[in-house]
């Protein structure tokens, strides 16, 4: 049972906490270690707005373990307003409604049910902006 693996990512997954470069102001998501040549403290935590637009999308009719109940489901690359790209599921939408460039917003949803005796994994998805 994966517990620590998902727990460790709660800030990233639940509220899109990424990083901002203290000197250049560059924002990236998700957080990752500073590069070998960088000052380890040069990236500080930063919460992204969760707003962006669809860079590309697909609808999966064949999925893997853990996502069968959800299939078919849409997946997208989203260009966040702060600059980074992220891969995430889309939700509350149908394929015919989707287009590249469409504005989307982050919602926190159940990503995965790891089984009756396992943890529920929550995380970011995106949907077409409400109004």
């Amino acid at each position: 049972m994966d517990i620590a693996k998902h727990w460790r990512q709660r800030a990233t997954r639940y509220r899109m906490q990424g990083q901002r470069h203290r000197e250049t102001g560059e924002i990236r998501f998700p957080a990752r270690p500073s590069a070998l040549c960088e000052d380890p403290a040069v990236w500080e935590p930063y919460i992204l707005s969760g707003r962006g637009e669809i860079y590309s999308f697909t609808v999966l009719r064949q999925s893997a373990d853990g996502f069968v109940d959800l299939t078919p489901y849409p997946l997208a690359m989203v260009r966040l307003n702060e600059g980074p790209l992220v891969v995430a599921q889309l939700t509350d939408c149908e394929e015919a409604e989707l287009s590249i460039g469409q504005p989307v917003e982050m919602v926190t949803r159940r990503l995965k049910d790891t089984g009756e005796d396992g943890v529920l994994v929550y995380g970011y998805k995106f949907r077409p902006v409400l109004s």
């Binding site: 590309s56 999308f57 064949q62 599921q89 990503l111 995965k112």
Partner: peptide, 16 residues
């Protein structure tokens, strides 16, 4: 972990 598969990654590239 968020539901992407290898095939879906190529699909995203194809659509773009």
């Amino acid at each position: 972990d968020i539901g992407a598969t290898l095939t879906s990654q190529w699909a995203l590239l194809m659509r773009r």
